[in-house]
Design a binder for these strands. Structure first.
Lengths: 364, 364
DNA sequence: TTGAAAGCGCTAACAA
DNA sequence: TTGTTAGCGCTTTCAA
């Protein structure tokens, strides 16, 4: 063991750890330097592996040995401070605990941030305005490089004033006023993809169970459904569009209305609605997909992959939302003129669709 | 506007924001001081509202005005640096994106951390060892006050070596060796609670669908079930314990085996298994709860609250795991001699249990 | 009541 | 090739 400065009153003897708490002040660059018998800048140089400033092989060895021996960890805050920029990026989420959606956004954002040497400062606000304001302040005080402001379902948001103090990108949400950049799912294309899942199997009379809640999902997916119908040369029949609460209860209750329309297939607003509809159909002796083909939306694994039969659905690109949001924030992707990037909602085929009676599936 | 030092080449004119990027260097204490015509220490004093060192009312006004006018935000990193302690606490999670479980742990941990002025540094490792090591390094370099190491399901873990460089608490997991403090769900009590849900309604012949995966949940819940039986004066019958994959498929496939035992009630390893069992029962013309009472585990909202009939189950205390883990880390709660705190798994009564034929529910 | 100055751990000129 | 030194933005003695 090399001698170190060893000053200060709260120094306890003995090598590694005391009981708990690890009260020992962390090892500093200076301590490493004096242990290795070199200056701090030399240590700094070998740690950061600067290309210029060649260090003598022997010196480098000694420094590295000292680092290892002392268990030195650079102090990221000191480093950030002197470099004048933090490696933090804030991510505020409004609901981390209810669905896996926010988790997927975080996952995507973190993977991308990580790749570029950034660290996520995550704040869960559970839609509480105070928590949100506090979170943003906290991030601002940590001099984040920017903030990703995300919601667990696609919606219009009011941009908190404090957000504008830094660079920010809206993820899975958007602002009324122009300006803020946003990354959102392409609801229209998603709706189209859902309908096409059915059309491709030859279905021509398809119901659309929409949500009762006004939202981009409600308007967008319906439009996508209409577009797909039009493209398939099928006249849009408003009677086939039904409204239901966007959960299992809503799906269950809409069963009779769906059945009354004599459709061969149905697009549900989301997987939960489809789950409720499954129950409703079963109670009425109807089979999926033989009597009615069902398509969901969200691709919520715990539901879609495990219903019987497994549910064909359209995936919401939460992970990608996080990734692309991060890329936009870092200036790696551009949003274009609209200030928005709309991400694809890919269809996920499973077993809830069959060819309707008296129809031949369309080749493609 | 007051004059400021105004040096450096990347100073652009104009008040608030330039287009994007907010390239302006953040306002510093010194700038506030010179704007207010006082010294930095005075500004520091009014910001931190120190009890000693009374500041003249008029001075305070001027400083506060300057702060507001300049939009000053303290630099948390500089502050942490000089104070010699960060306000960070790390939280590593192994699966933030698949279930809502990790989200709930994070939620609990953050609420508690927040309350004590700490900020969470969250890292999602998706069970990747490299990501985990990198995450912990990152946290250590930010001189976190400590780390919460969490898993999405209760299990034995190997404590990563780097963790021991700081204070840490295991959340929803535990180590083989003694030492590391851990906060976990009380599986035995949970299993007992599940069985009691049925026993209380008068069921006496109760199947137990266990998981095939060795785990504290597997052993603990079974023991709880046995304990509850014993307490109710019912002999344990090993034939009633069945094994199934811990998901919907497993539940579905075990249906016949359950039915073969002529039980009136069944405890499932988790809500997913119960969901599969519902399907299996329905396919065989059996009704829940009239023909068979079903109890789940986990209280996974999207399933338990929305199955038909709604599933009675036992909740896993993820949020509380986060809270208590944080409290232990902060020294607010003690773990006792075992080095472990086991948290209650409260029963959640819904509609999947009825009184069995020829039985009177037990009063309590 | 306020200011001057030292220093937290580090990087980056600039010297040697 | 290596060392000295001046800060980064802040808190905190210690003086005034």
């Amino acid at each position: 063991m090399t001698e170190s400065k060893n000053s200060g009153p709260d120094d306890d003897k003995g090598p590694a750890s005391s009981a708990r708490g690890r009260s020992r002040r962390p090892v500093t660059l200076r301590e490493v330097a004096s242990a290795a018998g070199v200056s701090v800048s030399t240590v700094s140089l070998v740690i950061n592996e600067k290309k210029n400033a060649r260090i003598g092989a022997e010196t480098r060895q000694r420094v590295q040995a000292a680092i290892r021996e002392l268990g030195y960890r650079p102090n990221a805050m000191a480093k950030n401070l002197v470099e004048g920029n933090s490696r933090f990026i804030g991510l505020v989420a409004d609901a981390i605990a209810t669905t896996p959606f926010a988790g997927q956004i975080i996952h995507g954002a973190q993977d991308e941030a990580w790749k570029h040497g950034y660290v996520l400062l995550v704040a869960n606000t559970e839609a509480d305005d105070d928590a949100e304001a506090e979170s943003i302040s906290m991030m601002l005080e940590h001099k984040v490089r920017g903030i990703l402001y995300s919601t667990w379902y696609h919606r219009l948001v009011e941009v908190p004033a404090a957000l504008t103090e830094t660079d920010f990108v809206l993820v899975n949400c958007f602002a009324a006023e122009p300006g803020p950049r946003a990354v959102v799912p392409d609801e229209v294309a998603g709706g189209r993809a859902a309908a096409e899942l059915l059309l491709r199997q030859g279905h021509r009379r398809i119901a659309f169970v929409n949500t009762t809640t006004p939202s981009p999902a409600r308007e967008g997916r319906l439009r996508g459904y209409q577009d797909a119908l039009t493209a398939a040369g099928i006249a849009f029949d408003p009677a086939l569009v039904l409204d239901a609460q966007p959960d299992q209860g809503g799906g269950y209750e809409i069963t009779d209305a769906v059945l009354a329309q004599q459709v061969t297939g149905v697009c549900c607003h989301n997987d939960r609605v489809a789950m409720g509809l499954y129950d409703g159909l079963r109670d009425r002796g109807q089979r999926v997909p033989e009597d009615l083909a069902v398509v969901g939306f969200d691709n919520q694994e715990v539901i879609a992959a495990h219903l019987r039969p497994a549910l064909s659905t359209v995936a919401l690109p939460h992970y990608e939302l996080g990734v692309v949001g991060m890329r936009v924030l870092l200036g790696l992707d551009q949003v274009g003129d609209l200030g928005r990037i709309a991400l694809d909602c890919p269809p996920v085929e499973r077993d809830s669709i069959a060819t309707p009676p008296a129809a031949t599936p369309i080749k493609r």
